[in-house]
């Protein structure tokens, strides 16, 4: 669904990623690891089209990103759920409205999805915090809310940047099991993390591939985990 072919990315001060290729197929489950600053977030940004590759081709749902207009990118993003490292909420709206925001911006009825939203809030354990503003939530609560927002549109691909960075192990396992569940429904998952425990736990539940960014290149990490 998202395909990178010999992609390079250059910030202007040298290449951060070189000749990277990856195919996020339906039902695939990938972890992305690597030291801080190696380019994990940049890699994800290339996937959700916030950055454009300086070389190579990125395809999203069969279309070349280079040839996509702004509206095409907006529509493609509705099929990609992203959990950002810093969550990215609208700080003046209560968390329940933030979670429902993808529905609102794509013109879907939030009232028709009220039950869904309710279930989702319940699942991420934020039902009682629905009317709180993002600033009033703890780091872990914000992370859970970000995941809820990423999946509310039932996207085909879910990209997560350190989704368990701020949550305890119990919550990490719950987040993971939701992602595994979504993966079993055929969705492609890509998680950037350096939480090795999370990767090990996931490997016992799904057939996950672990990728590592090293020296600007993407490598398949093997049994060393």
């Amino acid at each position: 669904m998202i395909e990178l072919e010999n992609v390079s990315y250059n910030y202007g001060g040298g290449e951060l990623l070189s000749n990277v290729s990856l195919n996020l197929a339906p039902g695939s489950f990938h972890f992305l690891t690597g030291p801080s600053g190696a380019g994990k977030t940049t890699f994800l940004k290339l996937c959700y089209m916030e950055l454009r590759a300086t070389a190579g081709h990125v395809q999203a749902f069969g279309a070349d990103v280079r040839s996509m207009g702004r509206d095409d990118i907006a529509r493609a993003r509705r099929r990609i759920g992203v959990v950002h490292q810093d969550c990215q909420f609208l700080d003046h709206l209560p968390i329940s409205e933030n979670i429902a925001l993808p529905l609102a911006v794509s013109g879907q009825s939030t009232s028709a999805e009220a039950d869904n939203l309710d279930d989702l809030m319940q699942w991420v354990g934020l039902k009682r915090r629905a009317h709180a503003l993002p600033a009033e939530l703890s780091g872990g609560e914000r992370q859970r809310a970000a995941l809820a927002r990423a999946v509310i549109m039932s996207p085909d691909v879910i990209l997560a940047d350190e989704p368990t960075g701020n949550v305890d192990w119990e919550m990490s396992k719950r987040l993971l099991s939701l992602l595994v569940e979504l993966n079993r429904m055929g969705k492609a998952i890509l998680i950037a993390t350096h939480d090795l425990n999370l990767i090990r736990t996931a490997k016992s539940q799904v057939n996950a591939r672990v990728l590592r960014i090293k020296d600007r290149h993407l490598q398949l990490a093997g049994a060393d985990l």
Partner: peptide, 15 residues
Amino acid sequence: QVIRVLRLIGARDAF
């Protein structure tokens, strides 16, 4: 920041 978030979750410019 608001515009950035809206774009990231798939809002079209028109919205």
